[in-house]
Design a protein around this nucleic acid. Sequence first.
DNA 1: ATTAATTTTTAGACAAATCTAAAAATTTGT
DNA 2: ACAAATTTTTAGATTTGTCTAAAAATTAAT
Lengths: 218, 218
Amino acid sequence: MTLSEENYLKAIFNLQQETDKGVSTNAIAEFMDTKASSATDMIKRLSEKKLLIYKPYQGARLTDKGRMHAVKVIRKHRLWETFLVENLEFSWDEVHEVAEQLEHIDSDKLIKQLDKFLGYPKNDPHGDPIPDENGNIATIEKKILAELQKNDEGICVGVDDSSSAFLKYLDKLNISLGNNIKVIEKEAFDNSMSIEVDGNKLTISSLASKNIYIKKTK
Amino acid sequence: MTLSEENYLKAIFNLQQETDKGVSTNAIAEFMDTKASSATDMIKRLSEKKLLIYKPYQGARLTDKGRMHAVKVIRKHRLWETFLVENLEFSWDEVHEVAEQLEHIDSDKLIKQLDKFLGYPKNDPHGDPIPDENGNIATIEKKILAELQKNDEGICVGVDDSSSAFLKYLDKLNISLGNNIKVIEKEAFDNSMSIEVDGNKLTISSLASKNIYIKKTK
DNA sequence: ATTAATTTTTAGACAAATCTAAAAATTTGT
DNA sequence: ACAAATTTTTAGATTTGTCTAAAAATTAAT
Ligand SMILES: [Mn+2]
Ligand SMILES: [Mn+2]
Ligand SMILES: [Mn+2]
Ligand SMILES: [Mn+2]
């Protein structure tokens, strides 16, 4: 399995999460920041390897084999991100790019021992669940902050946008995983929100609140 | 810098250590387990990138830039091997292949932090010196065990052959880095050696004794 | 039901890295 | 010095992954 094939598998896996339809050639090309013709080629290759089933105009669906491999790469990605933050003093906005490289290292023992070394972590530094050895991914009941109502309250358990820009912005606001967040006010005009983060009051835009996951407590 | 280019640089650096002449196309091809025509192509590419200077029939020599890059890859390789043994329960015969992959991960912060995490180790699990950030490689005065005389004594500080087969053989004999080794007898007939390893007497072949490095104490 | 818009595929080209087979250049042996 | 052996390069092909431009297939609109 080449690096490129693994990246396409991951992309298709992610796109598949958002819908129950097949993933279109164009969607894959856009996600991978490449051209439709390149996506067509890769779909053909992955299809030949029985990693996905493709029907023209109906899109691609990963086979069990394809899904398993994609999840394994995601598992590695998230374990490495955890290692970087927990042991190498990386901040959560710095880990993604390096993990994009590390996720392709091929060694069963390595990943097994890394998992053990980290103490079998359940979530990565962005709150995303780390798939287990068998490819199972835990789901937490979480809501987008933007959807909470006035006086709703909960714990910040994740982010939808893991870009460095957004994570740095959250750092500036002192918002991090585990924080208690309470909705003080919702502004109908621009959907901005006034919230209280572990006691501190602040206002965030609609764009920001759409990218924060909350596990409701009230 | 591609993975392949880095591997060629490493090969040329290693081959250069053994001689003061340039490294020939054929030597590179053999070391890389590839064909001379492939080596020619790569020499051309590396030469265009000013990583080496090549004169036909006189061989290749790394430039400062090329040497620096090769050493950086070796530094990463040895730091990762150290990590695998120290923290992930790998044995010294299992680390090389994984390190061959990890050495190509590109992140200055990663390698800096890994070094710090490991406590700035001086040597890797095979006794090889870990180059510092500036590309300096420490040299220890060491001798090949085969060259020691009767009653000579010293510490095992490294191995020349890092193959899994040889390392496993050493494990079986209970020879590891740091052991005190004393020459009891040298057999002229086949150059086998009777030695005492931390008290235990055993006999090893010429081939084995040629691949063990000793820092003499007596 | 045609036309228009969109999606997808094909065709042809390119770069990296490799190979085989043959040619060219150099070194060695006599 | 000349032939033989060795080393190195070239030429042409292959695979992976990509691109542009054009063609084909499908879906949507009137
Ligand atoms: Mn990530
Ligand atoms: Mn993550
Ligand atoms: Mn090694
Ligand atoms: Mn080593």
